[in-house]
Computed example of a mutant assay.
Amino acid sequence: MGSREVRDEDRVTDAFRRWLVAEGWTPVAPTDPDADIEAIRGVERLIGEAKGRTTDRGTDTGIAYGQLLRRMIGGSRDTRYAIIVPTSSVWHAERVPATVRDLLRIDLYEVTDDGAVKQLRV
Rank of each mutant, 00 (worst) to 15 (best):
A22N: 13
P27D: 01
D78T: 14
P86T: 07
L46D: 03
E94M: 15
A35Y: 06
T61G: 00
T54F: 05
Y81H: 04
I106S: 01
E44K: 12
V6N: 00
E23Q: 15
A116D: 12
L108S: 05
V122S: 13
V90H: 13
D10M: 10
D36P: 01
M72Q: 13
E110V: 07
L68G: 08
L68K: 13
G115I: 04
K118H: 10
W91N: 08
A82D: 03
E110S: 02
D32S: 14
D107L: 12
S3F: 11
T61N: 02
G75K: 14
G115F: 03
E110K: 12
R11L: 01
V21D: 06
V90F: 07
V28S: 03
I84E: 00
R80S: 14
G66A: 14
V85D: 00
A116M: 10
V43R: 02
I63N: 11
S89F: 09
S3M: 08
V6I: 10
A29P: 08
Y81Q: 03
Y81A: 07
L108K: 07
V85N: 02
V111K: 02
R80L: 08
Q119C: 03
S89M: 15
E9D: 12
T13M: 07
A22T: 10
P30T: 01
A98E: 07
Y81F: 11
V12R: 01
D107H: 09
L68S: 11
V21M: 08
D34Y: 10
V96P: 03
A35M: 08
L108V: 01
T55G: 13
Y65G: 04
